[in-house]
Structures are given as structure tokens and as C-alpha cells.
């Protein structure tokens, strides 16, 4: 037995890399459709977005992230946009305060809109300007939020395609941030806090958040106080949102986050096992050394 613990103690880290790689790849090739349990922060966000259908106010989806976190955050953006479009909630898609965010918003827009228009028959397709609008990147971070809060059209006079915001159905009545029903900031950084500090505190716009699993811990403080209306945390949060879309509004599409959760499940279980084994090995070796001296 001692040989086994010694082997673990001296294990080359490349074997761990190989095992991690296989733990990701195998479940993606042979998915085992793991069940998804829904948590309150995701339900709260879903319910809030769903309630916007009654108010007629637009939803602003902000893709405040770069490609590095897109595997975790893209499914969130897609699920939220899909939900809003299914419920005929007008959407303003905004790449946010990161220059790279615009590319992400464009990709998400393309994916969902293609899927929606492919699914629906000709007369019921979604139309740019009437159902959604894409905003361009504007440098300035905090100044952009405050500018939108005071005068939306002055801060972003045109959409990303060069149309005047006053001519588009979705944005013609959005004179300031307060005219927006909800901001959902999807980001792996601390930018949702910036939207909270200015858009919510100063202009009274509710904010929801979608974030990476690593950053989720930071936002529980704001969820508890009710400052964030809800949250999707990590891949699991995205999978929960997809599940809610399927269960409650019968959105039957390829659930990207739910598929990726199989890989995440396998990797988490693998890491837990190696951490426990590593600790047992550590104590056995320590005891063995103490016995020798």
C-alpha cells in the first residue's frame, strides 16, 4: 500500500493534465444528460425577465466579456435573449464597456436570431429594429453609463448598423436608462458592480447578473440585499436558465450549457477525488516519516 501512496506523492503532473483532458472530452462526446437542479438566484432572474412582457419596457442585455470567458458566458447571453424574444420583450443588445464585448454581442446576436428565424415561419420572424437592436462600442466606462442615464440618444445616437436610435421601434422611446425595464450584465469581471453603482443607485434601473462561477461568490452580497434582482452563476447557472426556458416556455433548442455541464461534472468529481487522495497520501507519508525518525 505504501508504494501506492509513494507513487501518488511522486506522480508526474502530466498524468493529471491527461486525465483532466479526458474528463472534459469524453462527456462531450458521450453525454450522460445529467439532471439540472434549479437554484433561487436563477429563478428570480428568470421571473423578473418574464414579468417584463407585461410592462412593455425593453430588456438590455450586456455582453461585458471577452472570448476567454465566452464558453461559460455565451450560453447565458443566448438563453436570456432567447427567453426575451419568445416572450416578445424588446431587446437592446450592448457589447458593454469592454472593446471585445462588441464582438461577443455580435456573435450571440447572430446565433440566436438565426435560430429564432429558422424556427419560425415567414410571417412570424423576428425583425431588426422592431424586436432587437445592437448598440456599438463606446469608450468611457463610467461616463458611458452616466451619459446613458441622462440622455440615452445623445450618448449613443446610432446603433451598430448606423441607424438613428430615434427611428428604431425598440429604442425610440428610450430617452434615458430609466426607460429600460432591466439590465442583465453578463460578465466575468467586476463590471456588473459598476452598472449597479450607477445604473441602479443613481438612475433606478434594476440590474441582474450572469457571471463566471469564480466571480459568483462576490455577488451574493448584492443578491442578499436585493440590489441584484437575480443571478446566473457559472455554467450551472446557464444550464438552469436553459432548463427554465424549456420547462416553462417550451423552448426546445440545443442546450449548450447543459451539455457542457456533463464535462464540468466529470472534472469537478475528478478534482475532488485527487484532492482527497493527495491529502491521504500527504498524511500517510508524514506519519511514515515521523515513525522513521
Amino acid at each position: 500500500m505504501m508504494k501506492f501512496w509513494l507513487f501518488l506523492e511522486r506522480l508526474d503532473r502530466r498524468w493529471i493534465y491527461l486525465a483532466i483532458g479526458l474528463s472534459v472530452i469524453i462527456p462531450l462526446i458521450f453525454p450522460f444528460n445529467s439532471p439540472t437542479t434549479i437554484t433561487p438566484p436563477t429563478v428570480n432572474l428568470w421571473n423578473y425577465i418574464d414579468s417584463l412582457a407585461e410592462t412593455g419596457k425593453p430588456l438590455m442585455v450586456i455582453t461585458d466579456y471577452a472570448p476567454s470567458t465566452s464558453p461559460e458566458l455565451d450560453p447565458m447571453s443566448r438563453a436570456v435573449i432567447r427567453h426575451a424574444l419568445e416572450k416578445d420583450i424588446p431587446i437592446i443588445i450592448y457589447g458593454g464597456l469592454y472593446p471585445q464585448g462588441f464582438g461577443m454581442s455580435q456573435r450571440v446576436e447572430q446565433y440566436v436570431i438565426d435560430e429564432m428565424n429558422h424556427k419560425k415561419v415567414n410571417g412570424d420572424t423576428i425583425i431588426y429594429g422592431e424586436d432587437w437592436v445592437l448598440l456599438p462600442f463606446i469608450p468611457g466606462a463610467t461616463a458611458v453609463i452616466m451619459g446613458m442615464g441622462d440622455d440615452f440618444h445623445r450618448t449613443s445616437p446610432e446603433d451598430a448598423r448606423g441607424n438613428s436610435l430615434s427611428d428604431l421601434e425598440v429604442t425610440k422611446d428610450v430617452r434615458r436608462l430609466g426607460d429600460i425595464g432591466l439590465i442583465v450584465d453578463i460578465s466575468g469581471s467586476s463590471l456588473p458592480r459598476l452598472w449597479l453603482q450607477y445604473a441602479t443607485t443613481r438612475y433606478g434601473v434594476p440590474v441582474g447578473v450572469g457571471t463566471t462561477a469564480v466571480s459568483a461568490a462576490e455577488y451574493y452580497a448584492f443578491l442578499q440585499t436585493g440590489q441584484f434582482v437575480g443571478m446566473m452563476g457559472g455554467m450551472k447557472g446557464a444550464a438552469e436558465y436553459e432548463q427554465l426556458n424549456e420547462d416553462l416556455i417550451e423552448v426546445k433548442v440545443r442546450r449548450v450549457a447543459s451539455i457542457a455541464m456533463d464535462a464540468q461534472n466529470a472534472v469537478h468529481i475528478f478534482i475532488i477525488i485527487i484532492v482527497i487522495l493527495g491529502n491521504i497520501s500527504f498524511f500517510v507519508m508524514k506519519k511514515n516519516k515521523a515513525r522513521r525518525f
Binding site: 506522480l11 493529471i16 493534465y17 483532466i20 472570448p67 476567454s68 478534482i271 487522495l277 493527495g278
Partner: peptide
């Protein structure tokens, strides 16, 4: 490219957690 660079972290995290 960007997603690959970031995903390399998971390998290092697993190895560091074990060691």
C-alpha cells in the same frame, strides 16, 4: 485562441490542487 489560453488554467488548477 483566447478561450484556449484561458482554459489552460483548469489544467494548472487541477495539478496545483493535487500537489
Amino acid at each position: 485562441l483566447d478561450a484556449t489560453m484561458f482554459s489552460l488554467l483548469s489544467f494548472y488548477i487541477a495539478s496545483a490542487a493535487f500537489k
